[in-house]
Simulated assay, not measured.
Amino acid sequence: MRVLVAPDTFGSVLTAREVAATIADGWRAAAPHDDVDACPLADGGPGFVDTLHAALGGQTVPVTVTGPLGEPAPAVLLLVDGSSGRTAYVESAQAIGLPLVPPERRDPTRTTTCGVGELLVAAREAGARRVVVGLGGSSTNDGGAGMLVGAGLDAAPGRLDAGGGALAGLRPEELGGLRALRAAWADVDLVAATDVDVPLLGLQGASAGFAPQKGATPEQAQALERALADLAHAATTALADDLRPDLLAGARPSSAAVRLTAAPGAGAAGGLGFGLALLGARVVPGAAFVADHVGLDDRLAASDLVVTGEGRFDWQSLHGKVAAQVAERALRHGIPTVVLAGDVQVGRRELSAAGITAAYAVGETPEEVQAALADPVRTLRARAERVARTWSR
C-alpha cells in the first residue's frame, strides 16, 4: 500500500517534519511492506519557512525584529532566486507568534505586528522583488496596524504600534501617510499566505474567533472588534480611490471597506491579512500555496491513502488549515484522508462534509492527553501504529 504522510505542526510541541517522521516510523513498524512517503506541510503559520526551504532550497538569512511586546525577536528570511528575480519568504509567527509571549503576559490589546513590517523591509533590502508572508499562530489582534508602521508608515507613537486596543476611535487623518506607503511598496509583489480563511470582523473574525485563545477576555474581544472596525473605516477612507473599485458593488462609499474586511483571510493573524491587503498584497490560502510548491498533487496521485494531522483538530481546521486542504485534493484523486491529531473536536458530520474519512486523537482521555504532552513522539508513534493496523491492506 502506498501511504502519503502529509501533516502540519503539532503546535509548538513538534514541527511538521518531526510529525511526518514520527507517523511514518509508526506506520512502517505496523505495516513494514507499505511504501510510506513523508511530506511535511504548513498553512502559513509556524513551519512555513522551514517547509518551503526543504522543498525549494534557497538561502536563509537571520534577522532581528521587534517582537509582539517590543522586545527583540530572531527571525529568518528565505531567499530564493528564479528566472523572474528574487523571492523572499517570511513567517509572521517568528516575529509575532504566541509562544513569544509568556502566558501571564498574553493580552492582544497590547501586542503589535510591527516586527512583520520590519521583516518586509529586510526582505526588500535583501533584493527581493516578491515577498511572501506566511500568516498564522500570532499573539496579535491589531489588524496589521503595527506592520504598517514597521513597513515605514509615519504615525504618532503609541497609536498604531501599541496593539489593537490603541486603535479605538482611529480617524482617517491619522492614516494620512497610508497612500504614500502603499505607493512606496508598489514595486514589490506582496503575497499574504493565510492559515485561515476567516474575515476581519464578525463572529468568526479575528477578534471574536481568535482573540480569546491569545489571552483576551470576552469584554476585550468585543472592544477589539470595535477597534478593528474603526481601523477598517479609517484606512479605507484614507486610501479612497487608491483601492481597486468593486464593479459589482456599484458606487457605494462603503464597498471597499466591506470587500476588504469580508475577504477570506482578512482576519488571519489577528487581522494581519487585512493590513497587508491595505499595502497592496494579494491574500491567498497558505495551505494551498504550500501544497502547490511541494508538489502535493503529484504525490497524492501516486498514493492509495493520505494521513494528515495537526495538534488540535477543531472548527478552525476546516477553515483553510492543512487537513482541509489535503482532504480537498485527495478527493480529486479518489483516495481516503485520515487525520491524526493530538485532540479531535470535530464530529463525523463535519468530517464527512470536509471529505475526511476518519480522525483519530492521540489522547482520548485526560490521562492519555497528559501522556501525549509528556512524550509526544512516543504517543504519536503508538497511535500511528494502531491506525496502520486498521488501514493497511
Score class of each variant (00 low, 15 high):
Ala183Gly: 06
Asp195Phe: 09
Gln222Asn: 04
Thr217Lys: 06
Gly146Trp: 07
Gly250Lys: 02
Leu201Asp: 02
Gly152Phe: 13
Arg179Leu: 11
Asp241His: 06
Gly163Pro: 06
Asp197Thr: 12
Thr236Trp: 10
Gln222His: 12
Ala180Arg: 15
Leu247Val: 12
Asp195His: 12
Gly250Asp: 01
Arg171His: 14
Ala208Gln: 04
Ala232Tyr: 00
Leu203Asn: 10
Val149Tyr: 08
Lys214Ile: 05
Leu201Glu: 07
Leu181Phe: 13
Asp241Phe: 03
Gly205Arg: 04
Lys214Pro: 11
Gln204Gly: 02
Arg244Pro: 00
Asp197Ser: 14
Val191Glu: 04
Leu248Gln: 05
Thr236Gln: 11
Gly143Tyr: 06
Asp242Ser: 11
Gly169Phe: 00
Pro212Ile: 15
Ala235Gln: 11
Thr140Pro: 00
Gly169Ala: 03
Lys214Asp: 07
Val191Ser: 08
Ala151Tyr: 05
Arg226Thr: 12
Arg171Gly: 06
Pro218Leu: 13
Gly164Arg: 03
Gly205Tyr: 00
Thr237Pro: 07
Leu243Tyr: 11
Gly152Tyr: 13
Pro172Ser: 13
Gly136Arg: 08
Asp197Pro: 01
Ala186Asp: 06
Asp242Thr: 03
Glu219Phe: 11
Ala221Cys: 12
Leu201His: 08
Pro245Thr: 00
Pro172Thr: 10
Thr236His: 13
Leu231Ala: 09
Gly152Thr: 02
Gly164Asp: 02
Leu178Tyr: 14
Pro212Tyr: 15
Leu181Val: 03
Glu225Lys: 14
Arg244Ile: 04
Asp241Pro: 00
Ala208Cys: 02
Ala180Leu: 12
Leu178Ser: 14
Ala251Tyr: 02
Ala249Asn: 03
Ala235Gly: 12
Leu247Pro: 07
Ala168Leu: 05
Ala180Asn: 13
Ala232Cys: 01
Ala183Ile: 03
Ala166Thr: 07
Leu175Ile: 14
Leu243Thr: 02
Gly215Ala: 13
Gly146Phe: 05
Pro157Cys: 12
Ala251Asp: 09
Ala180Tyr: 12
Gln220Asn: 11
Leu239Glu: 08
Asp195Tyr: 11
Trp185Phe: 10
Gly165Gln: 07
Gly165Met: 10
Gly152Lys: 12
Val198Arg: 08
Gln222Pro: 00
Leu190Phe: 03
Gly150Ala: 10
Ala221Lys: 13
Ala249Gly: 00
Ala238Ser: 09
Ala211Arg: 07
Asp246Ala: 01
Gly163Met: 05
Leu170Ile: 15
Ala249Pro: 00
Gln213Ser: 12
Ala235Asp: 05
